[in-house]
Design a protein around this nucleic acid. Structure first.
Length: 364
DNA sequence: GACGTAAATGTACCCCTGTT
DNA sequence: AACAGGGGTACATTTACGTC
């Protein structure tokens, strides 16, 4: 595949074309500096804009992908440029950022700073006096994808580690060990989070450490992301001969006996941390797939059912999915973060329970 | 020298598709 | 239906470089 590597030139052209297509708008690219003259950190291009009989000069800065973190620096730079330049026809030139992708947070910041923007997804914001333009489009595919992958697989393990110990400061290698990922993966996730301004850093080089400043924002974003991806498969079973309140313990014993890595999650686990429901009729377990797990399920006398299941199995392909499980009273319970995320994907009253649980047990 | 980061490279796996 | 091959994805590993 190839990632359309739009050049700055192409982006600008696309932007000017987008303006032209609007009614009563005429735009000309009148100045383009592919290479900056040394020392001049001003702007990349200038566009003359005529809209509804008024004329404006746009000073344009081009970037690949822009996050809130980048906005601050660019904002300052463009301000300098527009003040430094003689105003065209009485109007002060308007600063505008053109990028291949702009994150939602970055757009919001730009709007509050009254700096115009355009991205390759077609979003446009131009706060010209007397000629306000605002078009909101979903973020371009590349950005949507980079956000989606942040919350899956190994990367999610890094987020999990950060959330579980959100009060701590971490070096990359230390965090990588805790999350059971490579240092490179941990580093990538951290730099991505920094762009969203959810992280603070102190020190540089080998002594660099990071801390999750916005655990709420991160967990909210994760929850939001979950809604867009399909929930993991659940295998439903009925285990005969055990009373509901004893079922979890029984399952735990048998899984331990067969050396199956597992964790109880959903309602049954939440109930043990923060009682909410009067009774829980189904125990949901995330377990490492394999012969051992099959043997354990067989030993329980469990059989597959469509209705009336009292055991649900969620397959885990690596023990990274069982990160931060906790041994409580002889039973492995999923981490509070994992329980919350699982409950959100559940049915019936489980979303309600998720929020109760987050408030009571997670606290942010 | 130890660590952090980015880019290049390697690898295992999955999904799709066309063939038999 | 079974299968091989292509393409894509998700990570790890390697490498090179910068900073402390």
């Amino acid at each position: 595949m190839f990632e359309s590597p739009l050049t700055g030139r192409q982006l600008i052209t696309q932007f000017v074309d987008a303006l032209q297509e609007l009614p009563e708008v005429d735009a000309d690219l009148d100045h383009w500096e592919p290479v900056r003259t040394h020392g001049d950190r001003g702007y990349d291009a200038q566009v003359d804009l005529h809209v509804a009989g008024k004329s404006f000069v746009l000073l344009i800065e081009v970037k690949k992908s822009v996050f809130p973190r980048d906005v601050r620096q660019v904002a300052w730079q463009l301000r300098e440029a527009s003040h430094g330049r003689p105003a065209g026809q009485g109007q002060a030139p308007l600063p505008l950022l053109v990028a291949e992708s702009l994150s939602p947070g970055a757009k919001e910041l730009l709007r509050s700073e009254h700096i115009g923007y355009y991205d390759s997804g077609g979003s446009l914001y131009l706060p010209a006096p007397g000629a306000y333009l605002y078009i909101e489009k979903p973020p371009p595919k590349a950005l949507a994808k980079s956000v989606r992958t942040l919350f899956t697989g190994r990367r999610a393990q890094v987020l999990h580690a950060l959330l579980v110990q959100h009060q701590n400061w971490f070096g990359v290698t230390e965090l990588a060990q805790q999350a059971i990922v490579s240092p490179a993966t941990a580093s990538q996730v951290l730099t991505e989070l920094e762009r969203f301004d959810w992280l603070v850093a102190r020190g540089q080089g080998p002594s660099k450490e990071r801390h999750l400043r916005e655990p709420t924002a991160l967990l909210d974003a994760w929850a939001k992301q979950l809604a867009t991806i399909r929930p993991p498969n659940l295998r439903r079973y009925y285990v005969p001969g055990t009373k509901a309140e004893m079922l979890a313990m029984r399952i735990g014993e048998v899984f331990d006996m067969h050396d199956v890595e597992y964790e109880v999650s959903h309602e049954a686990a939440a109930q043990r941390y923060a009682p909410f429901l009067s009774n829980v009729s189904q125990v949901r377990v995330r377990a490492l797939t394999g012969a051992n797990a099959d043997a354990a399920i067989g030993d329980l006398g469990a059989h597959v059912v469509n209705e009336g299941a009292n055991l649900g199995i969620i397959d885990a392909k690596s023990s990274g999915e069982l990160l931060f499980r906790d041994r409580v009273d002889g039973l492995w319970l999923a981490s509070p973060i994992q329980i919350y995320l699982d409950l959100l994907r559940g049915e019936g009253r489980s979303k309600e329970m998720a929020e109760h649980f987050r408030k009571e047990r997670i606290g942010f």
